[in-house]
């Protein structure tokens, strides 16, 4: 299990990285390496060129803009979990990241790497779907912003040009009193989720004023349960409302594979949507 030979590049700036991408046809971008390296070792991918972003300046770190987090694509999962602004403003992110691999892989793994790898079961895409995160890509002609809803193109393929580089992720804040729930089911701690659910709720005066529910692992891309979100707004955050959301989740289109049937994924989605909403409601100030 040794990688096939490649030419290694270690650009120092995003511009250099983009230029290398433009120059080399069969190139792979190496971020934290926690998904790409196994694929290289197994020779599932055999690129001629590997462009390592670990030395690229200016694309890691977290900035609190006051209304959003701006996260450099090369920010390591570990650093996201430890960042004060992330913990204070988007507490669902560190909570969800506890489920991403293991602490040793989070020490290398990056948010950008996960979003570009786009595993259907991965936690970070599921979170970005809930937040309607915005992804900034750099190309030869400069930067462009891509709403997360448009980010997944197909199974494990983001809408990123061959010479484009993901550099930044913007996560808009929810109200200071928002509640959040992240629940997933995996066979073992750290495994990819069979189904993961992120729920965000804002509650005012005993009724839900804003809701977002995203489901990972059901389809090739995270699903937003918009029908349930709409139904929840204006409703009281109670068991009846959440059971209704669960029933909507049970009706989602879900894939099947050698291990897991679509019916089981739907059943899990129903269970976990309800649990995530209960958790979110408990944490939302103003629920009582």
């Amino acid at each position: 299990m040794k990688p096939a030979p490649f030419t290694y590049h270690d650009p120092a700036t995003p511009e250099e990285a983009v230029a290398l991408l433009a120059e080399h046809e069969d190139a792979k971008v190496l971020a934290g390496g926690q998904s790409l390296m196994p694929m290289l070792n197994m020779r599932f991918v055999v690129p001629d060129h590997v462009i390592d972003l670990n030395g690229v300046a200016g694309i890691s770190g977290v900035t609190d803009t006051g209304s959003a987090l701006e996260i450099g694509a090369m920010t390591r999962q570990r650093d996201l979990m430890r960042d004060a602004a992330v913990v204070a403003k988007t507490p669902i992110i560190p909570e969800a990241l506890e489920n991403v691999g293991h602490f040793q892989t989070r020490n290398r793994g990056t948010i950008g790497g996960s979003l570009c790898h786009l595993d259907p079961s991965a936690e970070l895409p599921c979170l970005m779907a809930a937040y309607d995160g915005v992804l900034t890509a750099h190309g030869p002609d400069g930067a462009r912003d891509i709403p997360f809803a448009e980010w997944p193109l197909a199974y494990m393929i983001p809408t990123l040009g061959p010479d484009e580089l993901l550099t930044k992720i913007t996560v808009p804040y929810w109200g200071a009193d928002h509640g959040y729930g992240f629940v997933e089911f995996a066979r073992r701690h750290g495994d990819f989720a069979m189904i993961a659910v992120a729920a965000l709720l804002e509650v005012e005066g005993g009724t839900i004023s804003r809701a977002a529910i995203s489901i990972g692992g059901a389809d090739v891309r995270p699903l937003r349960l918009t029908e349930a979100e709409t139904a929840l707004v204006g409703a009281a955050p109670n068991a009846e409302a959440f059971k209704a959301s669960a029933e909507i989740a049970r009706g989602i289109d879900a894939m099947s594979d050698a291990y897991v049937s679509s019916a089981y994924r739907q059943r899990l989605a129903a269970t976990l949507v309800e649990r995530a909403l209960v958790q979110a409601a408990e944490r939302a100030s103003g629920s009582a």
Partner: peptide, 23 residues
């Protein structure tokens, strides 16, 4: 050699990482 078993873990600049997933 695919980053799951952890036998190859070493510390790089003080942080534990998989040495099979790092060049």
């Amino acid at each position: 050699e695919h980053g799951v078993c952890g036998a190859c873990t070493v510390m790089v600049d003080g942080e534990a990482v998989r040495s099979c997933l790092m060049l």
